[in-house]
C-alpha cells in the first residue's frame, strides 16, 4: 500500500481486498460494548477541514478515537487561514507539532497531493475540490460488495451532477479496479469537459437517458446536486432536473426491489432522489454511513499501525 491515500488509483485490487477484510472486522467492533482498540495508541491524527462536512469528518474522528489515536479537528473557519495564512504555512505549522496523519479536505483540486509533498506525515484525501474522495469510493464499493457479493461484472449506474462530483471520479476508478461495468448518466450540461476521452480510456459508458440505463443496472449510485458549486444555469429548473434525472417513485418501480441504491449524502430529497427511494428497503444510504466508520478505521490502521508508517 502507498504511504498516502490521495486517489482511488493509489489502491490495487489486493489493497482494496485487504482494506475490506479489516473493515469487516472493524464493523464487528462497532457493535461491541467497548468500542476501542489499542492499535494506534500514541498516534496523532489531525482532521484538517477547509470545507463543511458532517459525516466524513465525524466518521474520521470516531474511527481515529476507536483505534485509540488522538484526533483533533481543525476547520478552515476559525483557524488562522481566516486571518490570511497560506495553506503551506498552516500545514507546516501543524506538522511541526509532530502529527502522524493529516486527513484533509480542501476546496482546491490537488490540495492533498500538494500537502503530501510538504510534510512527512501520512496524508489522507478526504475530498479535494471536484477531484477525488477516495474513502467515499471505498465505503461505497464496500457497501455494495456486502450486498451483491462481488462487483466483478456487475453493472453500476452513477447518476447526477458529474461536473462537480469528486465522488464520481473516485468511484469510476474504484469500480473499474474491482471489475464492475459503469455507466454514468447526466444531463449534457453536467458532464465535465473531456469526459468522452476519459470514458474511452477508463472503459466506462456515458448516457443522457436515465430511463434506458436503469432497467439494466445491478446497482444505482445517485449523486448530490451541488448547488453550492453551481454559479449559473446548468438546468432550467429543479423540477426539470427531477423529471429527467431524479430517482422518482416511478423509476423506483422500474428498478425492482433487489437493486441497491446508494447516495453519498447529504441528500436533496425531492430533487435527485425521492423520499420513497431514499427510505426504500433496498436503500443502502444508512449502511454507507455505518460502513464509513469501519472503512476509515481500516484505512487509518493500515496506513499508520505498521512499520515505517509516518514520522
Amino acid at each position: 500500500m502507498n504511504k498516502h491515500l490521495l486517489s482511488a488509483a493509489d489502491l490495487s485490487a489486493d489493497d482494496i481486498e485487504t482494506l475490506f477484510t479489516t473493515a469487516a472486522e472493524m464493523h464487528d467492533v462497532q457493535r461491541r460494548e467497548v468500542k476501542k482498540l489499542p492499535a494506534l495508541r500514541g498516534r496523532t491524527v489531525i482532521n484538517l477541514f477547509f470545507e463543511d462536512s458532517t459525516r466524513t469528518r465525524s466518521s474520521f474522528e470516531i474511527a481515529g478515537k476507536w483505534l485509540s489515536a488522538d484526533t483533533i479537528n481543525i476547520t478552515g473557519k476559525g483557524s488562522s487561514t481566516s486571518k490570511g495564512e497560506s495553506l503551506r504555512d498552516t500545514v507546516l505549522t501543524i506538522a511541526a507539532m509532530g502529527v502522524d496523519a493529516l486527513v484533509m479536505r480542501h476546496s482546491a483540486s490537488g490540495a492533498a497531493l500538494q500537502v503530501s509533498q510538504w510534510v512527512d506525515a501520512v496524508v489522507i484525501n478526504a475530498g479535494d475540490g471536484t477531484h477525488e474522495h477516495p474513502t467515499q469510493s471505498l465505503l461505497d464499493a464496500y457497501t455494495l460488495t456486502r450486498r451483491l457479493g462481488t462487483l466483478e461484472g456487475k453493472h453500476v449506474a452513477i447518476v447526477g451532477d458529474l461536473t462537480h462530483s469528486r465522488v464520481f471520479r473516485s468511484n469510476v476508478i474504484m469500480l473499474a479496479t474491482l471489475g464492475a461495468r459503469v455507466t454514468v448518466v447526466a444531463p449534457p450540461t453536467l458532464m465535465p469537459s473531456g469526459v468522452g476521452a476519459w470514458s474511452q480510456e477508463a472503459g466506462f459508458a456515458l448516457s443522457h437517458e436515465l430511463d434506458e440505463v436503469l432497467p439494466k443496472a445491478d446497482a444505482v449510485m445517485m449523486l448530490r446536486v451541488q448547488k453550492e458549486r453551481m454559479s449559473g444555469g446548468f438546468f432550467p429548473s429543479p423540477r426539470e432536473y427531477t423529471v429527467g434525472y431524479g430517482l422518482t417513485r416511478d423509476r423506483l418501480a422500474v428498478l425492482g426491489p433487489d437493486v441497491p441504491i446508494c447516495h453519498p449524502g447529504p441528500m436533496n430529497r425531492g430533487l435527485e432522489i425521492a423520499a420513497d427511494a431514499a427510505d426504500a428497503a433496498q436503500s443502502l444510504i444508512l449502511d454507507q454511513v455505518s460502513a464509513g466508520v469501519a472503512i476509515r478505521m481500516s484505512v487509518l490502521y493500515h496506513l499508520l499501525a505498521g512499520e515505517g508508517s509516518a514520522a
Binding site: 479489516t22 472486522e25 492499535a39 490502521y301 493500515h302 499508520l304 505498521g306 512499520e307 515505517g308
Partner: peptide, 10 residues
C-alpha cells in the same frame, strides 16, 4: 505492531 508492516486482523 510497529515492527512489521500492518497485518489485517482476523
Amino acid at each position: 505492531l510497529r515492527k512489521h508492516p500492518a497485518r489485517g486482523p482476523q
